[in-house]
């Protein structure tokens, strides 16, 4: 048998193992237009990331890759080199639109109809966000509204947004408690054992952790404002920050352990040199690693706690 040493990125396959809500995959016989994958901006960085709209674009989902090094799949009677598990989870479309509202506020600073705010030549499918059922009824949480004639005009409101984000942090904290997520930044047991909280976990640890998770979906400036609003001690003290900063400076595959996006990064680097890349691989290569950060933050805790 031949020994076949290849770099992972060179072994391509247009095949993915994906886990998605049944609401997305349950497609009755009459459904002709199924869900669509598309590239949208990551609301924190503005870079491309992979998203999914369900049938008729009623709901938005993000696609995150869970990847551990040295893993491959047996699928039926086949082998798939790519050992990633893609997770499709819901995203509040308000985070996505907030990004454009803030941009419009900086550029024009006036009341505008939403379809003039959510326009992006780089990500044309952003207009599909406007179809999301959970968008328009909730816009008032982040904007001032004016109605002239039958048309509604919106303007970003930082004050209202911070209030809204505060509620988001609150509901995230509740979920962290229910889920028994170990949020203690300096808990000595580096392992995650469901139901096994460090008894010294403070409310502030939960808020810090939730702030870190929410920060994955808002621009950095707003994240800093939110930290102040929440009266968090120091932004750098919030748990998920260090891995993010670290990830930023080291762009190589060095961090493979906690970086679920390693393959994308590698693809990105080989993009120009590998002429045999398919369109799908190119699309994936363009897909942002940072779009997959929040999950790595979530799962990064274990390593962080071990420091």
């Amino acid at each position: 048998m031949l020994s076949h040493k290849k770099r992972p990125a060179e072994v391509h396959c247009d095949q993915w193992v994906l886990v998605a809500p049944e609401s997305v995959t349950d497609l009755p016989g009459k459904t002709e237009n199924g869900p669509v994958f598309t590239r949208l901006h990551n609301p924190r960085t503005g870079e491309a990331a992979l998203y999914l709209f369900d049938t008729n674009a009623q709901q938005l989902f993000e696609v995150k890759a869970f990847h551990e090094e040295f893993h491959s799949w047996f699928i039926g009677q086949t082998v798939q080199h790519d050992g990633r598990l893609l997770l499709v989870t819901p995203v509040d479309p308000l985070f996505m639109v907030l990004y454009y509202l803030i941009k419009a506020e900086k550029e024009q600073g006036k009341f505008q109809p939403l379809d003039q705010v959510v326009i992006d030549a780089e990500f044309p499918s952003c207009s599909m966000l406007l179809q999301c059922a959970k968008l328009r009824p909730f816009l008032h949480h982040v904007t001032e509204e004016k109605e002239i004639g039958n048309k509604k005009f919106y303007k970003y409101s930082k004050e209202k947004t911070l209030k809204w984000l505060n509620k988001k942090v609150g509901q995230t904290v509740r979920a962290l408690k229910i889920g028994n997520v170990n949020v203690g930044a300096r808990v000595s047991s580096a392992t995650f054992v469901p139901g096994d909280h460090g008894s010294d976990v403070k409310e502030e640890d939960y808020i810090c952790y939730a702030h870190g998770l929410i920060s994955e979906y808002i621009p950095k400036e707003l994240s800093a404002d939110l930290a102040k609003y929440l009266k968090l001690p120091e932004l750098s003290a919030s748990l998920p920050e260090p891995p993010l900063k670290k990830r930023k400076v080291s762009d190589g595959p060095v961090e493979a352990e906690e970086d679920y996006t390693k393959f994308n990064r590698v693809d990105l680097k080989t993009k120009k040199t590998n002429s045999k890349m398919t369109a799908a691989q190119k699309a994936l290569a363009r897909v942002d690693k940072s779009g997959m950060r929040s999950i790595s933050t979530f799962f990064g805790t274990k390593a962080k706690a071990g420091k």
Binding site: T89, T172, R174, A175, I178, V181
Partner: peptide
């Protein structure tokens, strides 16, 4: 399940 909580409308 955590993502669902984070992204639910307030």
């Amino acid at each position: 399940s955590l993502a669902t909580a984070i992204h639910a409308p307030v």
